[in-house]
Design a protein around this nucleic acid. Structure first.
Lengths: 146, 146
DNA sequence: AAACCGCTTTACGTTTACGTAAACTTTATC
DNA sequence: GATAAAGTTTACGTAAACGTAAAGCGGTTT
């Protein structure tokens, strides 16, 4: 089940198009905890998943600190203290609300893009018409070679 | 049609829950262009709309620079140069793609929240059962007062 | 007139998320 | 065994987005 593949820093770097510097930084901030063989980092599939989550979080506007908070909380949750579990549920609820907000934002943005695009096309059409008109005028005033 | 109401900096600050410092900063960066009566800023409804767009942009992970780029481009677009219009359409298309990506991210996030929540509830249920078991044991071993 | 309020500018400080360079070790290749 | 390639640490630099004083201006309330 739990795949036991491992990854080098450059493999992950390439796969997710992120610099090794960033990956090391994420480790430094406690978001990743790769094993070590001597000095070199060895990333597990769990690390890989977390990296994916980090990047998605960024795309969604989450700071690294926020993402780390979630990771930590999730780890604590696994130990199963009741208070932790309730807090986790609370936070998950908040996340859900946030996602709703983002969905609304997206819908709004899409509508605005629609109208903006429409206006652009209108303007373009008008320009095209003017061009054609000029073309006709030009032809009318063409000197005849006969 | 075009409402001619105006707003003070503190009105906007309160309405959108953003500091006056931020608003001034947005102006400084060229995102807002309020009129002036003497020294004091007077914001139009257009400024208000732009502020709303700025904030939504932030929630969606856009930088101020990106938002400014869009504003500027849109202003230029109004002058109606064909090249500008085409570029605008291109950028709008890119935005659309980005929104699609964000939608996917949201769907993924929602799924993960679902499973996380489910696990939390399972853990809680188990804890509850254990509590009940202990309760029964406690009753069984209660000394009878008769 | 004094004190207060809201607004202003100027300017230095701070946090986040890396970039970049230097110098060093480890691993692979010829 | 030299040399390149990939990895490492250390450390200083930077851009973005404000925060946070400090000090001044223009009304108005007492």
């Amino acid at each position: 089940m739990n795949e036991k593949r491992t990854f080098s820093i450059s493999e992950l770097s390439q796969e997710f198009d992120v610099t090794t510097r960033s990956i090391r930084f994420y480790e430094d901030q406690g978001l990743l905890k790769p094993a070590r063989r001597g000095q070199t980092r060895i990333f597990s599939t769990k690390d890989r998943v977390r990296l994916k989550l980090i990047l998605r979080g960024k795309r969604m506007g989450f700071s690294l600190a926020e993402t780390k908070e979630l990771f930590d909380l999730w780890d604590e949750t696994l130990t199963g203290n009741e208070k932790q579990l309730l807090k986790m549920l609370e936070i998950l609820g908040a996340r859900r609300d946030q996602l709703e907000q983002q969905k609304n934002d997206i819908v709004q943005a899409e509508m605005e893009i629609d109208t903006a695009e429409a206006r652009c096309r209108e303007s373009l059409d008008e320009l095209q018409k003017k061009k054609k008109q000029q073309g006709i005028k030009a032809k009318e005033s063409e000197p005849t070679t006969t």
